[in-house]
Protein backbone atom coordinates (compact mmCIF):
# COMPACT_ATOMS: atom_id res chain seq x y z
CA UNK A 1 0.00 0.00 0.00
CA UNK A 2 1.21 3.45 -0.93
CA UNK A 3 -0.42 6.82 -0.66
CA UNK A 4 -0.92 8.81 -3.85
CA UNK A 5 -2.00 12.38 -4.27
CA UNK A 6 -3.98 12.92 -7.44
CA UNK A 7 -5.74 15.86 -9.05
CA UNK A 8 -9.02 14.67 -10.50
CA UNK A 9 -11.29 17.15 -12.24
CA UNK A 10 -9.43 19.92 -10.49
CA UNK A 11 -9.93 18.46 -7.03
CA UNK A 12 -7.07 17.15 -4.89
CA UNK A 13 -7.58 13.49 -3.93
CA UNK A 14 -5.59 11.08 -1.85
CA UNK A 15 -5.73 7.32 -2.09
CA UNK A 16 -3.89 4.47 -0.39
CA UNK A 17 -3.57 1.55 -2.77
CA UNK A 18 -1.18 -0.97 -4.19
CA UNK A 19 1.16 0.82 -6.66
CA UNK A 20 0.10 -1.45 -9.49
CA UNK A 21 -3.58 -0.59 -9.20
CA UNK A 22 -4.74 0.80 -12.55
CA UNK A 23 -6.03 4.37 -12.53
CA UNK A 24 -9.39 2.96 -13.74
CA UNK A 25 -9.95 1.03 -10.51
CA UNK A 26 -8.70 3.89 -8.38
CA UNK A 27 -11.33 6.11 -9.98
CA UNK A 28 -14.10 3.55 -9.79
CA UNK A 29 -13.46 1.89 -6.45
CA UNK A 30 -11.47 4.36 -4.33
CA UNK A 31 -12.96 7.63 -5.54
CA UNK A 32 -16.38 6.12 -6.41
CA UNK A 33 -16.37 7.81 -9.78
CA UNK A 34 -18.02 5.17 -11.88
CA UNK A 35 -18.52 7.22 -15.05
CA UNK A 36 -15.25 5.79 -16.36
CA UNK A 37 -16.02 2.27 -17.54
CA UNK A 38 -14.32 -1.08 -17.55
CA UNK A 39 -14.68 -2.85 -20.89
CA UNK A 40 -11.60 -4.99 -21.53
CA UNK A 41 -8.75 -4.10 -19.18
CA UNK A 42 -6.16 -4.43 -21.98
CA UNK A 43 -6.39 -1.07 -23.79
CA UNK A 44 -8.43 -2.60 -26.61
CA UNK A 45 -11.82 -0.88 -26.28
CA UNK A 46 -11.43 2.68 -24.99
CA UNK A 47 -14.32 2.48 -22.50
CA UNK A 48 -11.96 3.61 -19.74
CA UNK A 49 -10.60 6.67 -21.54
CA UNK A 50 -9.75 9.68 -19.36
CA UNK A 51 -7.48 12.64 -19.94
CA UNK A 52 -4.12 12.61 -18.20
CA UNK A 53 -2.42 15.97 -18.70
CA UNK A 54 -4.84 16.54 -21.55
CA UNK A 55 -4.00 13.32 -23.38
CA UNK A 56 -6.67 10.69 -24.00
CA UNK A 57 -5.43 7.75 -21.94
CA UNK A 58 -6.63 4.18 -21.37
CA UNK A 59 -6.90 4.24 -17.61
CA UNK A 60 -7.19 0.43 -17.39
CA UNK A 61 -3.49 -0.01 -18.18
CA UNK A 62 -2.00 2.98 -16.35
CA UNK A 63 -0.85 2.10 -12.84
CA UNK A 64 -1.70 4.83 -10.39
CA UNK A 65 1.97 5.08 -9.48
CA UNK A 66 2.72 6.47 -12.96
CA UNK A 67 0.19 9.29 -12.88
CA UNK A 68 2.35 11.55 -10.73
CA UNK A 69 1.21 15.14 -10.57
CA UNK A 70 -0.43 15.14 -13.97
CA UNK A 71 -4.03 16.29 -13.75
CA UNK A 72 -6.68 13.71 -14.50
CA UNK A 73 -10.00 14.65 -16.10
CA UNK A 74 -12.87 12.20 -16.30
CA UNK A 75 -16.32 12.15 -17.86
CA UNK A 76 -17.71 13.55 -14.61
CA UNK A 77 -15.57 16.68 -15.00
CA UNK A 78 -15.33 17.18 -18.75
CA UNK A 79 -18.56 19.20 -18.88
CA UNK A 80 -16.79 22.04 -17.10
CA UNK A 81 -14.62 22.42 -20.15
CA UNK A 82 -16.19 24.36 -23.07
CA UNK A 83 -15.15 21.74 -25.61
CA UNK A 84 -16.33 18.99 -23.29
CA UNK A 85 -19.67 20.68 -22.81
CA UNK A 86 -20.10 21.17 -26.56
CA UNK A 87 -19.35 17.51 -27.21
CA UNK A 88 -21.80 16.32 -24.54
CA UNK A 89 -24.47 18.64 -25.94
CA UNK A 90 -23.84 17.41 -29.48
CA UNK A 91 -24.08 13.82 -28.25
CA UNK A 92 -27.48 14.57 -26.76
CA UNK A 93 -28.83 16.54 -29.70
CA UNK A 94 -27.62 13.95 -32.22
CA UNK A 95 -29.14 11.20 -30.04
CA UNK A 96 -25.91 9.22 -30.23
CA UNK A 97 -26.17 6.87 -27.29
CA UNK A 98 -27.79 3.47 -27.23
CA UNK A 99 -26.78 1.36 -24.26
CA UNK A 100 -24.38 4.19 -23.46
CA UNK A 101 -21.73 2.07 -21.84
CA UNK A 102 -18.97 3.01 -24.29
CA UNK A 103 -19.96 6.64 -24.49
CA UNK A 104 -17.90 8.05 -21.61
CA UNK A 105 -14.85 6.82 -23.45
CA UNK A 106 -16.11 7.98 -26.84
CA UNK A 107 -16.78 11.47 -25.49
CA UNK A 108 -13.38 11.71 -23.83
CA UNK A 109 -11.80 10.62 -27.10
CA UNK A 110 -13.82 13.14 -29.10
CA UNK A 111 -12.93 16.01 -26.76
CA UNK A 112 -9.23 15.23 -27.08
CA UNK A 113 -9.61 15.12 -30.86
CA UNK A 114 -11.41 18.47 -31.07
CA UNK A 115 -8.88 20.13 -28.82
CA UNK A 116 -6.02 19.16 -31.10
CA UNK A 117 -7.96 19.27 -34.38
CA UNK A 118 -10.89 21.69 -34.19
CA UNK A 119 -12.11 20.82 -37.69
CA UNK A 120 -11.56 17.09 -38.02
CA UNK A 121 -11.97 15.27 -41.33
CA UNK A 122 -13.46 11.79 -41.51
CA UNK A 123 -9.95 10.39 -41.60
CA UNK A 124 -9.00 12.37 -38.47
CA UNK A 125 -12.08 10.95 -36.76
CA UNK A 126 -11.33 7.40 -37.84
CA UNK A 127 -7.75 7.67 -36.63
CA UNK A 128 -8.46 9.37 -33.38
CA UNK A 129 -11.53 7.33 -32.45
CA UNK A 130 -10.09 4.17 -34.00
CA UNK A 131 -9.53 2.34 -30.73
CA UNK A 132 -12.94 2.92 -29.15
CA UNK A 133 -15.37 0.06 -29.53
CA UNK A 134 -19.08 0.76 -29.56
CA UNK A 135 -20.61 -2.69 -29.44
CA UNK A 136 -24.03 -1.22 -30.18
CA UNK A 137 -22.46 0.25 -33.31
CA UNK A 138 -23.35 3.95 -32.95
CA UNK A 139 -20.40 5.02 -35.12
CA UNK A 140 -22.39 6.94 -37.73
CA UNK A 141 -23.94 9.19 -35.12
CA UNK A 142 -20.59 9.56 -33.32
CA UNK A 143 -19.18 10.99 -36.54
CA UNK A 144 -22.15 13.33 -36.90
CA UNK A 145 -21.91 14.52 -33.30
CA UNK A 146 -18.19 15.25 -33.56
CA UNK A 147 -18.82 17.32 -36.67
CA UNK A 148 -21.72 19.16 -35.11
CA UNK A 149 -19.72 19.92 -31.95
CA UNK A 150 -16.94 21.23 -34.17
CA UNK A 151 -19.44 23.49 -35.97
CA UNK A 152 -20.89 24.64 -32.69
CA UNK A 153 -17.47 25.54 -31.27
CA UNK A 154 -16.45 27.34 -34.45
CA UNK A 155 -19.54 29.49 -34.39
CA UNK A 156 -18.58 30.61 -30.92
CA UNK A 157 -21.02 28.48 -28.98
CA UNK A 158 -18.35 27.76 -26.43
CA UNK A 159 -16.91 31.14 -25.58
Amino acid sequence: METYKLTVNGQPKEVAVDPGTPLLWVLREELKMTGTKYGCGIAACGACTVHVAGIATRSCVVPVSLVGDRPVVTIEGIGQDPVGRAVQDAWVSEDVVQCGYCQSGQIMGAVALLKSTPKPTDTNIEESMGGNICRCGTYVRIRQAIKSASQQLKSGGAS
Binding site: M33, T34, G35, T36, T74, I75, E76, G79, Q88, W91, V92, D95, V96, V97, G100, Q103, S104, I107
Partner: peptide, 9 residues
Protein backbone atom coordinates in the same frame (compact mmCIF):
# COMPACT_ATOMS: atom_id res chain seq x y z
CA UNK B 1 -31.56 8.56 -21.03
CA UNK B 2 -29.03 10.49 -23.12
CA UNK B 3 -27.78 13.11 -20.70
CA UNK B 4 -26.94 10.77 -17.82
CA UNK B 5 -25.24 8.46 -20.30
CA UNK B 6 -23.12 11.38 -21.54
CA UNK B 7 -21.96 12.78 -18.21
CA UNK B 8 -21.10 9.59 -16.38
CA UNK B 9 -23.95 9.83 -13.91
Amino acid sequence: DSRPKCNGS
